[in-house]
Amino acid sequence: MSHVRNIAQGARGFTSNAFLVEGERTVLVDAGNDFDAVSRIESAVDDLDALVLTHTHPDHVGNVGPVVEAFDVDVWGFDPDQDLVDRAIADGDEVRIGDHEHVALHTPGHKDDHLCFYSEEAGTLYAGDLVFANGGFGRTDLPEGDRATLIESVEYLLETVDDSLSAMYVGHGPAVETDPIHHVELALQSARMSA
């Protein structure tokens, strides 16, 4: 079973969570920003196989350069036209994160290149900044943000996940390891009410 740790835990500054997923393919999901990601990765694992981005807001990608330089990894993301992205991931593609294949879900609304990654087999979801614990959802007041599109993306997410979902790793705040689908449903309600 893959081991997931947030290497941004306790970091002070403007950063997202950054999940180091150990397993058959050791992957960093988002690089975070404004902390020494390389030393935190090196203290946990011997090597890194890939860096996968949920999206390219600065708080999620600030550490990409040092991580790529230290581990010589490709950066995977939705938009290959972004300077940081080496390999494109399209909606519906499968990406191995740790020990399990995760389906990529293109979920714009917070940012046009936003992806979530869901594994039915593992029961895990990397939700980026689409939804958060306790019904939170991504900002839509930034460039490329759009509330109606975000609502559609949360609906798409709910149509895709099932009762196997047991852990949701989000871009900010705590992971959700108790009834994560309920938190996604709350986020949809909240987004609709404030639309």
Rank of each mutant, 00 (worst) to 15 (best):
residue 120 E to C: 07
residue 138 G to W: 07
residue 148 A to T: 01
residue 164 S to D: 15
residue 91 D to Y: 03
residue 106 H to Q: 14
residue 105 L to T: 00
residue 149 T to W: 12
residue 120 E to P: 04
residue 166 S to N: 13
residue 121 E to C: 02
residue 110 H to S: 06
residue 76 W to E: 03
residue 132 F to W: 10
residue 167 A to Q: 14
residue 76 W to T: 03
residue 93 D to L: 04
residue 88 A to E: 10
residue 114 H to D: 05
residue 89 I to E: 02
residue 148 A to K: 00
residue 116 C to H: 04
residue 114 H to E: 11
residue 136 G to H: 01
residue 103 V to D: 13
residue 139 R to Q: 14
residue 90 A to E: 14
residue 135 G to V: 12
residue 117 F to Y: 15
residue 163 D to S: 06
residue 135 G to H: 12
residue 151 I to L: 05
residue 156 Y to R: 03
residue 142 L to N: 10
residue 157 L to M: 15
residue 166 S to E: 14
residue 82 Q to T: 08
residue 93 D to H: 08
residue 75 V to C: 07
residue 150 L to T: 11
residue 153 S to P: 07
residue 146 D to I: 05
residue 85 V to D: 05
residue 84 L to I: 08
residue 111 K to T: 14
residue 138 G to S: 07
residue 108 P to F: 05
residue 131 V to W: 02
residue 110 H to M: 08
residue 86 D to P: 01
residue 106 H to K: 12
residue 111 K to P: 03
residue 165 L to C: 12
residue 77 G to D: 01
residue 153 S to M: 07
residue 89 I to S: 06
residue 160 T to W: 02
residue 125 L to D: 02
residue 167 A to R: 14
residue 138 G to E: 06
residue 151 I to H: 01
residue 126 Y to S: 06
residue 135 G to E: 12
residue 98 G to S: 08
residue 99 D to Y: 07
residue 145 G to H: 09
residue 144 E to W: 10
residue 159 E to H: 14
residue 114 H to Y: 03
residue 83 D to V: 13
residue 75 V to A: 03
residue 164 S to W: 02
residue 138 G to Y: 10
residue 154 V to A: 11
residue 100 H to M: 03
residue 74 D to S: 10
residue 144 E to L: 08
residue 102 H to Y: 13
residue 132 F to I: 13
residue 143 P to E: 08
residue 86 D to K: 02
residue 115 L to D: 11
residue 77 G to F: 09
residue 112 D to A: 09
residue 163 D to V: 00
residue 120 E to W: 05
residue 76 W to V: 05
residue 130 L to E: 11
residue 129 D to L: 03
residue 161 V to A: 09
residue 128 G to Q: 00
residue 157 L to G: 06
residue 157 L to D: 11
residue 149 T to S: 13
residue 80 P to D: 07
residue 117 F to Q: 05
residue 96 R to F: 04
residue 162 D to H: 09
residue 121 E to S: 06
residue 167 A to E: 15
residue 122 A to R: 08
residue 137 F to E: 07
residue 77 G to V: 04
residue 87 R to K: 09
residue 96 R to C: 03
